[in-house]
């Protein structure tokens, strides 16, 4: 109903407006997916933009609650509820992303594993305390990360291992950005750029051409810029979320096979059509060697840019086409 009202209101604004030159408006949210979300669009009026921004914020909050593993909400069986009870009827988005995540486990050679929840939870506590976890504490938890213990039947997800918990952190933001972009389009917002914690979805164009997305250099500054119109862009980097202990940096992308932060790359950027795929790919590529990463990216028609731990920059051939 809310969507319908927003669509009607947006259409009304569009019909009544006497179309002056569209102006750029932007909004920032810091209360969804434990990250900063940026939304920018060219609109005829502040009122029109605010309608889109509110619809977007509502949708992101709704999705945030579904994939939240820390808090439960009244009247909603979410990821936290599932981790607690190990079985139950889930919202369609939770079903869809879980099914997709099971496929991604195989596609990434086990580098993307939503069953890694208990290991990631220990790393999460470490980021809070500032002290890295001991391998002897991580190893017993890794015994309870078997993707085959998750089953989906109809709208019910079941977890066989009582010590296994799910974590959608590597996939949820990209998926949510995709869903939110679909909602924006459905209420009449055709030209916009949205970034949910670095998961960028661009639609249409701004006056004068494509949207311009800067890719940060791991040590600061801008490494390069890409021009996109209907693509998703995402970067996984060791500089985004981390803590330092005794001069060593511990970042947030944990390799399921070593249980430690992956250290092949400083950052990996992926451009492709789907934001959900882009998010999964960037995390997988961050943990994979160049050759395996290239094959995986190619299978999804994705382009990629790697910054190695030595600072060397590697690109797929098609990536250059997006650079200015």
């Amino acid at each position: 109903m809310r969507r319908l009202l927003a669509a009607m209101a947006a259409s009304a604004v569009l019909l009544c407006g006497c179309s002056p030159a569209p102006k750029k408006y932007s909004a920032v949210y810091t209360d969804v997916f434990d990250t900063a979300t940026e939304f920018a669009a060219y609109c005829d009026s502040r009122e029109e933009f605010d309608l889109y921004a509110e619809a977007l914020h509502d949708e992101l909050l709704r999705l945030h609650k579904i994939f939240d593993i820390y808090d439960e909400y009244d009247g909603l069986f979410n990821a936290a509820s599932l981790n607690k009870t190990k079985s139950g009827g889930c919202p369609s988005e939770l079903i869809e992303l879980t099914k997709s995540a099971v496929d991604w486990y195989d596609l990434s050679g086990g580098k993307l594993n939503i069953a890694l929840g208990s290991v990631l939870s220990l790393w999460h506590d470490s980021r809070e305390s500032g002290i890295p976890p001991a391998m002897e504490d991580l190893k017993p938890l890794a015994e309870h990360c078997d993707i085959d213990d998750i089953s989906v039947e109809g709208d019910i997800i079941s977890i066989k291992d009582p010590q296994l918990s799910l974590d959608f952190g590597a996939l949820a933001k990209g998926y949510a950005a995709e869903k939110a972009a679909e909602l924006l389009e459905s209420v009449g917002c055709a030209d916009f750029v949205l970034s949910v914690g670095g998961n960028v979805v661009a639609r249409g164009e701004k006056p004068g051409g494509s949207w311009e997305i800067g890719i940060s250099s791991p040590d600061g500054g801008i490494l390069t810029t890409v021009k996109v119109s209907d693509e998703a862009v995402v970067t996984s980097g060791d500089y985004q979320r981390y803590f330092e202990y005794e001069g060593v940096r511990y970042h947030h992308i944990i390799d399921p096979q070593t249980l430690m932060p992956a250290n092949l790359w400083r950052s990996v950027t992926v451009i492709c059509k789907s934001s959900a795929d882009a998010d999964a790919l960037s995390t997988a590529l961050f943990c994979l060697d160049e050759q395996s990463g290239r094959i995986l990216a190619e299978n999804f028609g994705a382009e990629a840019l790697w910054v190695s731990s030595k600072g060397e920059v590697i690109r797929t051939e098609g990536f250059e086409d997006y650079e200015k």
């Binding site: 920032v28 311009e212 940060s216």
Partner: peptide
């Protein structure tokens, strides 16, 4: 919840 963003004419719309 603090964000600090450089703005100006032209340039990148978002830097990630």
């Amino acid at each position: 919840g603090v964000t600090v963003k450089i703005t100006g004419e032209g340039g990148a719309d978002i830097v990630i």
